[in-house]
């Protein structure tokens, strides 16, 4: 029962004014720019490809259903295989992103956070003191 620090500041996101100079320095640093680039390099193409892959599936189902009827093995047709492949690719992209984020995003983010957080805590202590 942690009644020690009930958080009494108003619950609005914009309540604390952090040290903007420190943040801007980070934003312009090569390390942060590299993190941002690596994040977008994965996230944007992966989202686009998944959406395109899904759109191709839906369009084929609607406008070329005979393609889906192509037999693959016995009663399994191409539509069934493609549908299950949608599930499989969703799982694959998920695990690929987890691997990528663990390897290429989290360490850089943690490093920047570890350096920046003491600076911000010092500067914003007045407005933002209740944070544990």
């Amino acid at each position: 029962m942690g009644s020690a620090a009930p958080d009494d500041r108003p619950d609005v996101a914009s309540d604390a004014e952090p040290d903007i100079e420190a943040l801007r320095t980070v934003q312009n640093s090569p390390r942060f720019r590299a993190l941002k680039r690596r994040h977008r390099l994965f996230v944007l193409p992966a989202t686009g490809l998944c959406l395109a892959w899904y759109l191709a599936y839906v369009l084929t189902a609607g406008y070329a259903p005979q393609v889906f009827a192509t037999p693959v093995a016995g009663s399994m047709n191409l539509g069934m295989v493609w549908g299950l492949a949608q599930v499989a690719t969703t799982f694959a992209v998920t695990m690929l992103y987890v691997w990528y984020a663990n390897k290429h995003l989290d360490p850089a983010a943690a490093e920047i956070r570890a350096e920046l957080e003491p600076v911000l805590a010092g500067a914003g202590a007045g407005a933002n003191g209740a944070r544990a």
Binding site: L23, Q27, F32, K36, A109, L116
Partner: peptide, 23 residues
Amino acid sequence: SDKQTEMEVRSLTGVGAEKATAH
């Protein structure tokens, strides 16, 4: 642009993100 800076840095690094309450 201050808010943009804050949001971008915060969104990618978690700096200043809301913490869990300790129980």
